[in-house]
Design a binder for these strands. Structure first.
Lengths: 330, 330
DNA sequence: ATAATCTGTGCAAACCTTTGCCAAAGGATG
DNA sequence: CATCCTTTGGCAAAGGTTTGCACAGATTAT
């Protein structure tokens, strides 16, 4: 690792262009203020010297920084990957760097990481499904935050609003003849999990069908696999899973027990993120993670936005993991 | 987004503790220099005032920054996700932030992003399989870099060394009776792809069996699906894919054509990263991405490391996507 | 006793930028 | 010709930290 050459500073440019430091600074930061002629000359010199303004010095004096943070419980979840990718793309267009912090779902780490990021970021996109509301408020005092898939009063947020889509999914299943359906929950304390469970339970009650709630899981693929036995035991013909990861696990678990999807059991997911990898293709609901990533960055970069909670409508994607139950052939 | 309160500075602490600014600074940065008594008092005050040193100011004067960058062509590839997760974990232990930049495999963006990151990072972990060597050298003049899965003379790097493992995989296939095997390549210009192709071709020649090389792909799942037709046409009994993503695609493509794995065709992957999601479980080779992530961060954080290229040995993972060909029943 | 050495602390410069304020020059207006 | 305004550019302070140097007091050696 060779020592990098010292970068050119405003001073170097000023000397070479025979103007004062402030003039050079203004050429870049307040365009109208300097005559076209001077401006041209300065830019020319700056280019020749490969001058780029020192981010640290600028941040120090302006009190802001050209970065944002993304704090997530588990970056290996494809939903987050997709969100990150989109967030990063928008940020790049604004010459804004993106810090990523994976907290392994630990509240301590979340706090620690947010503090660390606070100084170097304009704000952080916080995805913390299980964190307590008070903890979130506390963090929002340290650094501006935008929440993802979580609604807290007075803090801007973007969430997938899949309520309508999940009702539609449930209606579909009922139309196909399913009368006894299970919900396979995600992580116990997760805000989104509560939302989804409630939506499904309410709809089932309205439709007058049986909906059984399986035991809470940690949201891992293995939990889905493990849930297969219980599913068969409960004698349901369809399972709506918290997300695609669990759904994929369940499909695998059922297969291991010699059952097939959708012939023996129909399975639905959430997020539409594993669609291409599993077989049969999952009937699911779009998670809109990319869109949410975009919006969150835009909100963070534009301080004038409101603090409201915006929901991004999910839509149903019908694939081949759902079908008529054996008891109701077409 | 409410305005954040002004953070306490060295000056605030110094006044409250009735010592000079430099004393406070030294309490934190050069421990031995200050008497235990003063040190204790200062720390006490600092804690009470919730003082945290201003990163920008510190970086400005020391000329280093507490961050590193990770530049990858596509963060949605699980190999990278896993590397990122590991890198991030190690970094956190060193209170080091991690910038992530997804370049969509564009050389322009790579360059741009590295320049942007240069000022705010101690160095960057660069994963750029297709970038030209000269371009890489150029970037290494702007900012210290560590390469991943790519070897360039004079630049430190960490790569999965799967040559022995891939030979073992091929030997396995031959032992099982396969005599005509295909290699499904990854992205055309990729350094790792060349390595793997060469390793397999050489070994096949040594063993005296047929090895046919399929057309280059872009490395997407869809390419794997699309390759299925060609595979059947070529009449091979086994396919070694560049990575798990392609392998999974191929399995899916074969299924769509009514063939089963491994009964009709055996398939192997690389990276061991999709193992749990696809069926049948992929016989593959560990990509060691987490290990490489760790090592790369450690190398970047410890300037005393050497510039050598280190290979991390991969190991074979036997699952159920390989087996005896129809023509050679057990 | 004095000189030499250590220890603990403070002063002030430096890092590089942004920006409020001021001055000079030139033009327009009366 | 005096006054005022506009345009352009410079000066210097500020932002929070690190660190070389100096200095005072205490401790040890001579």
């Amino acid at each position: 690792m060779t020592r990098q050459a010292r970068a050119a500073t405003l001073k170097d440019v000023a000397e070479a262009a025979e103007v004062s430091i402030s003039t050079v600074s203004r050429v870049f930061s307040s365009p109208g203020r300097i005559s076209p002629e001077t401006s041209r000359r300065v830019r020319e010199v700056a280019r020749r010297l490969r001058f780029t303004p020192n981010v640290m010095a600028r941040s120090l004096i302006t009190g802001t920084s050209p970065n944002i943070g993304l704090v997530v419980p588990d970056i290996s979840n494809p939903y987050m990957t997709s969100l990150l990718k989109a967030a990063q793309k928008v940020s790049r267009l604004h010459s804004t760097g993106v810090f990523v912090a994976d907290t392994d779902d630990s509240a301590d780490i979340e706090r620690q990481v947010c503090e660390q990021l606070a100084q170097q970021s304009r704000g952080v996109i916080l995805c913390a499904p299980r964190m307590s509301t008070s903890h979130i408020r506390e963090i929002s005092r340290i650094v501006p935050i935008v929440l993802v898939n979580r609604v807290v009063d007075g803090i801007p947020s973007f969430s997938t609003d899949s309520r309508a889509a999940m009702r539609e999914l449930l209606d579909d299943l009922v139309d196909q003849g399913h009368r006894r359906i299970a919900y396979l929950p995600g992580p116990a304390g997760s805000w989104a999990n509560k939302q989804r469970a409630r939506t499904v339970v309410d709809r089932a009650r309205a439709l007058g069908i049986d909906l059984v709630r399986l035991d809470p899981t940690t949201g891992m693929h293995a939990d889905g696999v493990a849930a297969a036995g219980k599913v068969l035991e409960l004698d349901v013909t369809a399972v709506m899973a918290f997300d695609d990861v669990l759904a994929a696990g369940l499909v695998e678990g059922l297969r291991r027990l010699g059952r097939s999807v959708p012939d023996d059991v129909s399975v639905t997911g959430h997020d539409d993120i594993l669609s291409e990898l599993v077989h049969p293709g999952l009937t699911t609901v779009t998670g809109q993670s990319a869109r949410i990533g975009q919006l969150a960055v835009a909100r963070l970069l534009d301080a004038s936005g409101s603090d409201e909670a915006v929901g991004v409508k999910a839509v149903v994607v019908r694939r081949s993991s759902t079908g008529r139950p054996r008891s109701h052939p077409a």
